[in-house]
């Protein structure tokens, strides 16, 4: 018993020491966020003890990935909520909660605006900005490196002839054309985005008829369809049964839409795998 207790204590010390080494230069001790995506980044990458507040949205079932520690205050983006928490770093996005951010800035709190990311380039800029604000977090740097690696491995050069065609069918028959992050991911993974081919810039609509007529090799859904909504009626239509049955579908995670920083690497890897499957099948 005694020996075991000693090893445990030793291990605890070791972990503590590792923590101290790994997070040598966390720029702030009491971080608050006024933005859903930044909430998620903080919750995933920063030790919970250093977070004082995230937005209430992160506490909603829909966005919560793990239980939020009790000491973290769920704010509704009001300046007076954050005052008593005395944060030493407040993160906010480019849009939303601007009044609260301005107010807090006036009161002398350090507010940092992290740019939103709607493309891979912007995503890199976002990660850089985060690195500057939070210091060199291990997961942040890892993510930056992974992203850079994935982007460097550009398959579009080599596989001109075997480029499977993909089409995104999101809620309410929305599709993603050129200029969107989702389009970049598809093309980076070695697909042709049919929506972009059809001249859709940014967002567009695609009817089921067009889906059938275009006959993509991969039909990409977007977001969770577990809760009923008329918006998801298209993807439940029996005409798409053969796509689903033959596995020629992929579902982009909802998180990609509101916080790509956490989802991009996984999505890109999965899409590449999917592409390989389709090319092999041919």
């Amino acid at each position: 018993m005694g020996r075991q207790g000693r090893t445990t204590r030793l291990r605890a010390w070791l972990i503590c020491g590792l923590w101290l080494c790994a997070v040598p230069a966390l720029a702030a001790e009491r971080i608050a966020s006024l933005n859903l995506c930044l909430d998620q980044i903080l919750l995933s990458w920063v030790p919970p003890n250093n977070i004082v507040s995230v937005t209430w949205l992160s506490g909603q079932d829909q966005y919560r990935r793990a239980p939020i520690p009790e000491h973290i205050y769920l704010n509704r983006a009001q300046a007076e909520e954050l005052l008593p928490l005395t944060p030493d770093l407040i993160l906010t996005g480019q849009f939303g909660a601007q009044r609260a951010a301005a107010r807090l800035e006036q009161l002398g709190f350090p507010v940092v605006r992290i740019p939103d990311a709607y493309s891979l380039e912007q995503l890199q800029a976002q990660l850089t900005a985060l690195g500057k604000a939070l210091g060199p977090l291990p997961q942040l740097t890892a993510q930056e490196k992974q992203l850079a690696d994935l982007l460097a491995d550009n398959p579009s050069a080599g596989h001109e002839q075997s480029k499977p065609r993909a089409l995104i069918l999101s809620a309410n028959n929305i599709t993603y054309g050129s200029g969107m992050l989702e389009h970049q991911l598809l093309t980076r993974a070695g697909f042709t985005n049919l929506a972009a081919e059809e001249g859709v810039n940014q967002l567009g609509r695609v009817s089921l008829e067009q889906v059938i007529a275009l006959a993509p090799d991969l039909l990409v859904f977007y977001g969770g369809a577990q809760d009923f909504a008329i918006a998801h009626l298209a993807e439940r239509h029996p005409v798409l049964k053969q796509y689903i049955a033959s596995g020629r579908t992929y579902r982009l995670p909802e998180q990609l839409g509101y916080c790509p920083a956490l989802a991009v690497v996984d999505v890109l890897q999965q899409l590449k795998k999917k592409r390989a499957e389709i090319v092999d099948a041919e």
């Binding site: 028959n173 809760d227 909504a229 008329i230 918006a231 009626l233 029996p238």
Partner: peptide
């Protein structure tokens, strides 16, 4: 209070109706 994110905007559908994306089912 519906769990789906799209629910609130779908009041339009329920008030005005639609035949889009309907099938034999």
């Amino acid at each position: 209070y519906a769990p789906s994110m799209f629910a609130m905007q779908e009041i339009v559908f329920w008030l005005l109706g639609s035949l889009a994306n309907r099938g034999w089912d």
